[in-house]
């Protein structure tokens, strides 16, 4: 099924999705999607809007229940993995209410909630984790600012810091490069490589092909199902990309959305 990993290595998989199908009230959003990612890898999840990227993410995070197939994170069922703080999700900027009265520090501290007791009273170790995470994304100076006063790139970094503070081994990033400034982009790219070194597994949902080429070890091409999966250099062929983007060669400048209308015609 998957050419890269031998079966005996399966136990060491961080992300394991086996023939996952998801449907919303009878409309199939994703079928037969399989994916195996080991520790210390960066994988790009590439597809058009509506191709099932966010459905795949939702299934991995347990937000939607697959109608068939199974998902394991670190060998655990999704809800168990969440309780073990295995998964960190870094949202798209649009999904967050930035007028919410919380500071950058508060937001990053939310990454520690799962490890705290029911009263969510931070211990010294939690504060250290938050401090360290803010240091890594270079936001320590802004820690007392309201989250809404940050720029787009800084906001992204704050949510990345929350994922770092959570110390999750699996990171799911939704369009991490959308609308960020160049320094943030550089910093994030460096961080991702460090994460890989540390043994994290990163799954990046994106339609920006350049970023995938730059630092993803693996690529999953998706259009309602996994069209191709493997090492970036092998999978990133024009033939595969044509399949993914529905017969329209993707233009990295205008983005794959532009091809969507074409397909519908």
């Amino acid at each position: 099924m998957n050419p890269i990993f031998k079966s005996h290595e399966k136990d060491f998989m961080r992300i394991e999705a086996d023939q996952v199908c998801v449907d919303y009230n009878g409309t199939v959003a994703l079928y037969d999607a399989s994916l195996n990612l080991k520790a210390g890898s960066i994988c790009g999840l590439v597809g058009m809007n509506g191709a099932g990227k966010s459905t795949f993410f939702k299934a991995l995070m347990g937000f939607v229940r697959p109608s068939t197939g199974k998902i394991r994170l670190n060998g655990l069922r999704v809800n168990q993995a969440q309780k073990d703080q295995t998964v960190a999700y870094v949202p798209q900027n649009e999904g967050i209410d930035y007028a919410f009265p919380v500071s950058v520090w508060d937001v990053v501290m939310m990454g520690r909630y799962g490890a705290m007791n029911i009263f969510r009273i931070p211990r010294e170790s939690d504060r250290r984790a938050v401090f360290h995470a803010l240091e890594r994304v270079d936001l320590l100076d802004l820690r007392n600012r309201p989250i809404g006063s940050l720029s787009g790139g800084q906001r992204k970094r704050a949510f990345l810091a929350r994922a770092i503070a959570q110390r999750a081994s699996v990171l799911l990033l939704d369009e991490p490069f959308a609308g960020v400034d160049v320094p943030t982009e550089k910093l994030m790219a460096e961080l991702f490589l460090q994460f890989r070194q540390e043994g994290h597994t990163i799954l990046i949902s994106t339609h920006d092909l350049n970023h995938v080429r730059d630092f993803c070890d693996f690529v999953v091409l998706i259009n309602k199902t996994v069209l191709a999966y493997g090492e970036t250099s092998e999978v990133f062929t024009s033939e595969n990309l044509n399949k993914t983007f529905g017969g329209m060669p993707p233009n990295p400048l205008s983005g794959p959305e532009s091809s969507k209308n074409f397909v519908n015609e």
């Binding site: 809800n79 969440q82 919410f100 919380v102 939310m110 909630y113 969510r120 929350r162 959570q166």
Partner: peptide
């Protein structure tokens, strides 16, 4: 008072709350 932080997190970012097992 007991659940103020969980409820605050739920209001701010329910997805994150779910992803950490709340």
């Amino acid at each position: 008072l007991l659940f103020r932080k969980d409820l605050m997190l739920y209001c701010f970012d329910a997805k994150h709350a779910r992803s950490i097992g709340i």
